[in-house]
Write a protein that binds this DNA or RNA. Sequence first.
DNA 1: TTGAAAGCGATACCAT
DNA 2: ATGGTATCGCTTTCAA
Lengths: 337, 337
Amino acid sequence: MSESRSRSFVSAQMVADRAGVSRSAVSRTFTHGASVSEATRRKVLEAAGALGYHVNHLARGLRERSNIVCLVVADMTTPIRARMVEVLTRKLQAAGKITMVINTETETESVDSALRQTLNYRADATVVLSGTPPASLIETCLANGQQVILINRDEDLRGSSNLGVDNAMAGREALFLLRRAGCRRLGLVTSNARTASLVERERVFVEAARAAGLPVAVTEAGPTHYASGRDAARRVFGRSQAPDGVFCVTDLLALGFMDVARHEFGLAIPRDLCVVGFDDIEQAGWDSYRLTTFSQPLDAMADEVVDLLLRPAPGSAQRRIIEPVPVWRHSVRPGPV
Amino acid sequence: MSESRSRSFVSAQMVADRAGVSRSAVSRTFTHGASVSEATRRKVLEAAGALGYHVNHLARGLRERSNIVCLVVADMTTPIRARMVEVLTRKLQAAGKITMVINTETETESVDSALRQTLNYRADATVVLSGTPPASLIETCLANGQQVILINRDEDLRGSSNLGVDNAMAGREALFLLRRAGCRRLGLVTSNARTASLVERERVFVEAARAAGLPVAVTEAGPTHYASGRDAARRVFGRSQAPDGVFCVTDLLALGFMDVARHEFGLAIPRDLCVVGFDDIEQAGWDSYRLTTFSQPLDAMADEVVDLLLRPAPGSAQRRIIEPVPVWRHSVRPGPV
DNA sequence: TTGAAAGCGATACCAT
DNA sequence: ATGGTATCGCTTTCAA
């Protein structure tokens, strides 16, 4: 009867009518591990197929978990972020979750409204890749039984789970690499984003260098992009005392830095200049760059997120640090010239 | 009372109880353009704030549109795809929609299950960026009142709206550029993906060249990635008759191609070799490449998608072709040597 | 195994 | 302007 109207979703009731069974039978057929006779099951499946029935997860989510996970992210076109989104959506999907992406566009824009959306859609969890959510809102998410997972945020907000890479290690290791290459005049290039991760890499690198008696010229460029790396290089090599070893806190910065150093100042890498990056984006491996850098173990991080989601005890908010892995390529000499 | 239990979402009823009004009043307060007295409104808002209430969009979606849009996409880490996803999520969000991302991982993997998810969550529309959905499923989506928008798919499936760039124009223009540069031995590099877009660019380029009396050596590499461009270059320059003008159907292919041509075969670009790409990914503009290419008008495409969604007459499935815009950089000479 | 019925949370319609 | 009620589609008791 009512199926003829089309142009609207088909419900379990319609399937039940057509199959000549009760609405409950239909529900059971699609609920894993429910008891239905083979005969009923077949009838239901047949009717469902004919009608094009699909279980309404919205309605299902009314009573239990929605299986929705929100991803709050800015700067999605950045290679590293794109990879994070890809890995997360893929692994979440494999775990039976569906991902809602909330694009906060700029790091500064309020994550606030994003968190609210997350609440509106009754997401089981929110994964924050960008920005700093206000503590009060996190409180609200938690109070509503929603998990909050912060990635590379380091803000250490109570109740939220934190996941990040060991930035200190990267800072120390970068210094080690440059010193081993015999670099004497060190430089550090960072962006004006000043996120906790970036600041930490800078701090450790500079402090370790200072401890070794090597001062570091710090250059703060614009946003964490290729163009900022270029700008930084122009500034750095315009000065009298140009560095011969530079740690760029991000691959994108490093790539822009290298291009200007080479094409505008005629520097040979790694002969005249050694460069270390961070992230190991795909482009870092391209023949024109062959950048020595640190790879973020994205798979491991995504696995951890899924694990956190599936874990029965969400109360135990924790902080997990994952080690980045050094990737030696050719932008740093293996030893002094 | 019940608010103390926490660990569960707060409902309109709780807010109503606390504010001492009816559940309807709460609903009205949050429905745009409903009539509530200022006094009631204030009481509701106050209670809602205290309780941390957020309208349940899942429940709302039970009766009317869900405002969910599904994005079916593979190969998300690819710069062009990442940008598409970014633009779409951003513009959809601005239009009051929320985006669900379904990662189909590989072009070949069944878009089938993705479409089903879309149906499960009662998405108002599905935007397909990758893969070829089976016609029958599209049928089902449409029958359920869901819009289907295919981007750069060209499969021309009945009922779905199609959006794409003018690949023929790019093929023709690429040839024009290379001929003007005085190239005599033409080459074309494509991937084994053989999507409609890629095939079309190839077809038009080759046919136009043939018409002009210039044969084209076609090289089909692996997937549409940087590594495939490198492989192609190795194959192409290993042969006796190396080309002096090449159209790579994708920037990623072009970049890999350029790197090998330069670093492994010592070719100077554009002196010894001219290269044209397609997509205008960010890296194409980097100093190491300065690739002449065509830019996909992603903003316009996203606007069109939003427009399609908001349009009252979804019955009129249409096909919109948008012109890519040539981006002249330095991988092609302005004239003969 | 099966069907009837009670929610889940919100909105639209109807009276008031 | 306000409150009561039906309804959306599903899952889950509870009886039979």
